[in-house]
Nucleic acid binder design. Sequence first.
DNA 1: CTGAAAGCGCTTACAG
DNA 2: CTGAAAGCGCTTACAG
Lengths: 332, 332
Amino acid sequence: MAVTLKQIAARCGVSALTVSDILNDKPKPYAATTKAKVKAMAAELGYRPNAAARAIARQRHARIGVLEHSFKNASWLPQALVEGMLDGCEQAELDLSISRSSEEGFSDPTFVPRIMREWCVDGLLVNINYAASPALDELCQQHGLPALWLNCQRTDNCIYGDDRGAARALTEYLLAAGYRDLRYYGGAVAMRENHYSKLDRPGGYEDAMRAAGLEPMTILTGSGRTETDLRAALLGSLGGERPPVWLAYSPAELSTMLGLLIGTEARVGVDLHLASFTASGEMAQVCIAQMRQPLETIGRQAVADLVKLIADPTRRQAPSIVPWALHPGDLA
Amino acid sequence: MAVTLKQIAARCGVSALTVSDILNDKPKPYAATTKAKVKAMAAELGYRPNAAARAIARQRHARIGVLEHSFKNASWLPQALVEGMLDGCEQAELDLSISRSSEEGFSDPTFVPRIMREWCVDGLLVNINYAASPALDELCQQHGLPALWLNCQRTDNCIYGDDRGAARALTEYLLAAGYRDLRYYGGAVAMRENHYSKLDRPGGYEDAMRAAGLEPMTILTGSGRTETDLRAALLGSLGGERPPVWLAYSPAELSTMLGLLIGTEARVGVDLHLASFTASGEMAQVCIAQMRQPLETIGRQAVADLVKLIADPTRRQAPSIVPWALHPGDLA
DNA sequence: CTGAAAGCGCTTACAG
DNA sequence: CTGAAAGCGCTTACAG
């Protein structure tokens, strides 16, 4: 049904090998007329090389995989990250395959994700944001499958955003703008969700505050503190010389704060300011400043790093730590 | 380097075919001891079947592709949609490959997306949200590549959310709750972005208003109307018997409205209410009601529909139209 | 200037 | 109960 090299060869009166060579632009001295004839025929018949046959002959799949985890919140795959990966794949002429382990499996030492049960990719981007079981590490090693960990702090072969630096930069920016009463609101580290950002964002904020000789004020819900506490803190922060600025872990926290302010007299942009870490600039209209996650860069760089790893699987690459970008909000 | 059937066969003193049959659980009367031996050896050596070799022998790739467009906003791929697709793929034992056409190409009749330049998937989910050039349609036809259009209204072989029904349901819900002054805010249809939702959301709202004997009030920015107009309309809507409810096309519009309200005396939840269409419940804290896009269902169903299409490529499937879900907001 | 041979790792259809 | 033969569609290394 699909057109093959052989069919083109037959119609052109040449061998399949000749067709293959010509269509792959091999530096061989074929006659110009032969080349033209073959290329024309391929176009006419709508020839598409069979990627599987090619993979098997060339001994490489020319494809990398992304491994997701099926637990809620265990994998973070915003579109911008995918776009970045696609950029990277385009550059390296690689296909991108997404898979997910559906089993509760990473605690089970005998568990093998589907993408590793078959041999179908040259390398793997592991997109699991809480500390995955070491079993996965061993599995990759054992199968000789080059793997790069995304959005996760490890000693090597990983890439992640510089959340601590981002928090520091945001804090310093606000301090430089003359604000003194900066406060942070986010969620506490939870079981199975111990993503580094939960610690590094407040951490960077606190670093910068202390460096400026100011006392940080951090509210983390989930660890005994509730939204009621937040509400009290929010309202209690009002009325100083200059309005306080609240730094939100993400747009979700921003939204929570806006909800808590409803029904009160407190006016955003007047009585208090909001700032936030965001994926791609959500809710800039209510913020005085934002940090934007470098998702596309991370995706692109992840692929590039993985390509190096595929070229030399024994290599242990230093972590790629990607800086965030500061954007003044609409209320700046 | 990777373990093959032959190696297992050699170590077990059987043929490669026997190993293949046993590992694939073929209903053949192999001796129990042979089966055990082969399976044990496969496990010990960490055998992973080569998907490419299998694809070529079985004459199917066991993989579907998602085609994205590289224009900004031309493809909408939220994580929930991917999750749904992965669900569907898991069910059908299919791999999922994501690709993107990077060229400006769909207007160029000679342009062929990369995923179609090779033969590597059994079917394609076209995730291009503005009307793609008919050339793509023909290309698929010509290559005998089953294709299903996502998030796009066509006469057949497509799947999309019921935006019109969602808008009607949201409006009716608010009317039933006693609100009478409902207003819609969204963007006008723009070049290259004529997604049906831009028309169907206000359309459904207007249908429901008229059916209730009320005059709809729709503000679309972009078509001559600006945010200044919106601000005027927003403030002008205040002060009636009951607070007005503004229906936002998406959280972005919600955010715009919140931004415009800053510095005014108008209080959300008191002087006016907000409602919105959302992907997954963003900003529920400031809403009185929300419609949530059925992204996972769409993803799952899209794969299922495509599987049927692959089984019978000549088939012209009626569109799958997926209903949205109503969620009262936190301010309901 | 071109191609025959062998091989990649698997499976299908058949034979014994 | 098991396997030899042929084939899937391509490429590598070599020969002429």
